[in-house]
Amino acid sequence: MKECYLGIDIGSISTKAVIINKSYQILSSCYIETKGNPIVAVKEALQLVSIPPEYQLRGIGTTGSARKLIGLLLNANVVKNEITAHAVGTLTYHPDVKTILEIGGQDSKVICIRNRMIHDYAMNTLCAAGTGSFLSSQAKRLGVDVKDFGNIALKSTNPTNIAARCTVFAESDLVHKAQIGYPKEDIIAGLCKSVVLNYLNNVCKGKRLESPIIFQGGVSKNVGVHKYFEEILKEKVLVDDNGHLMGALGVAILSSKVPNPRNYTLDFQNIEFKTIGEECKGCSNRCELVRIYRDRELLDTWGSKCGKY
């Protein structure tokens, strides 16, 4: 029996699952929307990926904003943050990369790599301006599908300037530009450009972006944003076809390196999971307790500051 490993990246907008073998080749993968319910999304994703019959699952890794919850439910042997996962995944497939630009649904980060390891990183702290959710909400406002966003942006020769310091103000600026009659493609191109500028000014502040540069995360599928990155950085920016899967690939690789693995099965579908929120009344801290049940059996309680639970 050959060995294979499952990596799941549960992000704010999309859930990615991937199964790899020992030599890190992708056997099966899927990409679906989270829609605010990670448990349902993971159940759906696990139906979409399939383990070939000659393989045995020997490790599960989770990453992304719901990594802790899903890691607990699936009994994963690796639960890692997105930054490490992305770096590990990228370095496996592109060992020479020196800078990773990553723009996801809710956060954006830059990872600087020297000597094939993370040297420095930064993540957006205060605001979600210039992330995937910003682009998708603006697409909705303009009545365009996000997937066409990039191609429409490429048509423009004269992108408008959109103030992108803050999501809310960018939106009002966009409305203003639309109101004075700018063509749609110029506004969309302006949006893509403002995402790039905002990202470079806020997240990459003080970081040296050395080439080769690779661009990942959901937004990397947007050719408009990609074009403006190359234009503004004056460097070639790589985009991997599997760029959106890198986080999932990274944790799958990490889980393959765990010593003493055990066999896993994916009997996740029929089990009922429930999360119940509760306020602890022990002291005036009033911690918000989160209890997680599997078929009425209490798995874990999170959120207490004093360590009572």
Binding site: M117, I118, M123
Partner: peptide
């Protein structure tokens, strides 16, 4: 998340 990533990074750099 940030602290965890920072710690991972320091560990990797040490190796």
């Amino acid at each position: 998340t940030r602290i965890e990533a920072f710690c991972d990074m320091l560990e990797m750099r040490k190796q």
